[in-house]
Computed example of a mutant assay.
Amino acid sequence: MRFKLFSIAAGALAMLLAAGAAQADGYPSRSVRIVVPYATGGGSDILARQIGAGLQHLWGQSVLVENRAGASGNIGSAEVVRAPADGYTLLLQNSTMVTNLGLTGKLPYDAEKDLTPIMLLGVTPIALVAHPSLNAGSVRELVAVGKAKPDALSYGSCGIGTPQHFVMELVKQQAGVAATHAGYKGCAPAVTDVLGGQIPLAVVSANLVVPYARTGRLRVIGISTAHRYGLLPDAATFEEQGLKPFDFSIWYALMGPRNLPPAVVAKVVADVSAILAQPAVVANLSSAGVEPYKGTGEELARLIKADTRRYTELARSANIKAE
């Protein structure tokens, strides 16, 4: 009896695998949509449109980018979770998903179980910058200013619980510097206020400060990734300045509903990888602040797990709470 049950189960599994392979053979046979759970104009949206245009050319099928913003990316993500697992609805998520999870301890879906991790696409470093009047262009100088003027430092971020906010709280913990947080609604207002001297520090997506750092209107104190940022090669990383381990970025990833057929995943990975290798695509993304990074679905799954743990621990130790 036990053998018979095993045979039935094995037969059912074989049929499912065969059906998935057959389904993938003609994929895609109709239009595909890429859901971006954020507003237009950000890194996720730019990446989705660049990839979508490339896939449309390769596949000869329409690839539609749909922005489903709201609830810090949860509305669009939940929509993909509910979609059929056939490869015709994909999700372009970013690390905001795991900062939300680290901050609140829950999402309206299970990030590890309800989505298929397809691949990593790219990263955007985070930069801590200062107004020139602060006389701080490094972590050591920032610590010195903090000691000379206790309780005088404040910094702007892109919002409470954003990756940028978490990065600065880690800098504060590791460097031993005190600074009061001012959460803005987006990175751009924080950049504007530090440029105008209304606030001495800001921690934002690095690409937003490139022109101001190059002209001296802002001083870069540190870059959040383990390696230097290509658009600001003279700016030292936090790791180079003794804060270790320190490797945080805004990452972008392609995902799908749970149980996406492996053959579909393999085709998407192969074709998107080819697009990300094109020099024109690399240049376009670089100008938008996104450094292409091709990582496997397995790497993405490990990153989601590791970042969820890191952000959860940091939210607790820095007492970061949702608005």
Rank of each mutant, 00 (worst) to 15 (best):
A10T: 14
R82K: 14
E239R: 11
L92Q: 08
G161F: 02
R302F: 15
S154C: 10
E299Q: 15
G20S: 10
S133R: 15
P132W: 13
S205Y: 13
I46A: 09
H181G: 06
A69D: 01
P261L: 02
G60E: 13
Q23I: 05
A69G: 03
L90D: 02
G70S: 06
N135C: 09
G42A: 04
T296G: 05
G42E: 14
I275R: 06
V264Y: 00
G186F: 06
R49P: 09
A148D: 05
R217H: 06
W59G: 15
A83W: 12
T124W: 05
V80G: 02
E79K: 00
G70M: 03
T308N: 00
L120F: 12
T89D: 02
I126K: 05
A175W: 00
E112N: 02
A288S: 13
V63R: 00
G105C: 11
G76F: 04
Q173E: 08
G222M: 07
P125T: 06
Q174M: 15
V143D: 01
V282P: 12
T296Q: 02
K185L: 11
L170E: 15
F166T: 01
K106V: 12
A10K: 10
G76N: 00
V268I: 15
P163G: 11
D25W: 11
N94E: 02
R68Q: 01
G242W: 03
I118H: 01
W251K: 07
V80E: 04
V269T: 12
G20E: 11
V63E: 09
A188R: 11
A85F: 05
S154Y: 12
A190D: 03
S317D: 10
I221C: 04
D110W: 12
V220Q: 04
V268D: 06
Y229C: 02
A39C: 09
A12N: 06
A266M: 07
I75F: 01
A144G: 01
S286F: 04
K113C: 06
F6W: 13
T124P: 08
K267V: 08
R258N: 11
P150M: 04
Y88C: 01
T296R: 08
L103C: 10
D234N: 12
Y252S: 03
L16E: 13
L254V: 13
A48E: 01
L103E: 06
G43V: 04
L17C: 15
A18K: 01
Q56I: 09
P211I: 08
H181K: 08
V129G: 05
I199K: 00
A175R: 11
E169L: 07
Q241K: 07
L58H: 09
S317G: 05
G87K: 11
P233A: 04
G216P: 08
S7Q: 10
G60P: 14
A136C: 08
I51P: 05
